[in-house]
Amino acid sequence: MTTRVGHAVFGRPAHPRFPSIDIPEPKMTLLIEKSAPRTQEKPHKVRGKVRLREHLMGWLFVGPFGIVFLAFLIAPLAYALYLSLFQKKLIGGTSFVLLDNYVKAFTDPSFLSGSWFVIRFSLVSIPLQIIAALAMALILDAVTSLFTRFSRLMIFLPYAIPTVIGAVMWGFLYSKSFGPLTDIFGLFGATPPDFLSSNLIFYGLVNIVTWQWAGYYMIILYAALQGIDPTLYEAARMDGAGRWQIALRIKIPLIAPALLLILVFSLIGTLQFFNEPQILRSLAAGTIGPDFTPNMYAYQQAFALANFNYGSAISFALGGIVFIGVYAFLFFTRKRRSFL
């Protein structure tokens, strides 16, 4: 979770519309067209100076970002693809091998076990984070007091902590030398769980990730809940709906787009899992190998073994899997939602 795409939180001027969160998807462009219906744009058959000027100004505004986009997104992706098609051999130098690196990756136990780990990890940690965030958001939305306002801020606080520092802090808490677990379990005469052991490291990491992100997701969901028109609740109460029914039948369906958004971003973040296991590696000697996650494996191949071709292939395969997976997921949910 190096750079999770920041999202959320900003105000719109006097536009208290229902907090619809449109999932980024090419379909969006259709919406944009709707906002300003114009004649078909035909770049070559420019009608007069005005159109040419508009093309020019548009590109002047978008251009600087476009350059950065080409230089630091398109070019690296293309270059990774290019590099991944070659192999460096001790004898004979670098040679073109087409898909050999990918064949190697998808039969490489290190890459496969790392991929399997992040998939299992996503299946456990993402639902946990989202359910925790949803529960907290619903509580904070339903109960108002000075204490809940304080809680909201405190639960959000870990978001302000770099994931690396979060992992360092939890590493201390898990540690046998200076963590509190020994003391606490000692009170009951029990042996403390060792979250840095190979049995429990999975849960140790689930806990760190949940601690780090649940508050952030809570804030997003809370914002969406606050945007719901409260007269809806009044109407539901008139109809005899209880508190639970209001939460389940009104609140949750209305914030479904926000739930989908955090689901997508947490998926993208979790599949490129790197920071936390990398930091805990030094504490959990032997538990976390250099191929613990695909991203760590790519890092090791590239920077420890200087095998940039294979490292690029792993990076590109991982990026491709994430991209296709998320895209398919969005497509699927989009379709299903339209039937609801």
């Binding site: 795409v5 980024p24 093309h55 476009g66 992706l77 590099l83 993208i268 490129q272 990026g319």
Partner: peptide
């Protein structure tokens, strides 16, 4: 402007590219 829709679709697609995949290249 010319190619606006295509460019914007690219930007949206970029949201789904994991940032770490870009680091090595």
């Amino acid at each position: 402007f010319a190619a606006r829709r295509f460019s914007f679709a690219l930007v949206l697609g970029a949201l789904m590219v994991p940032a770490t995949a870009l680091v090595i290249p």
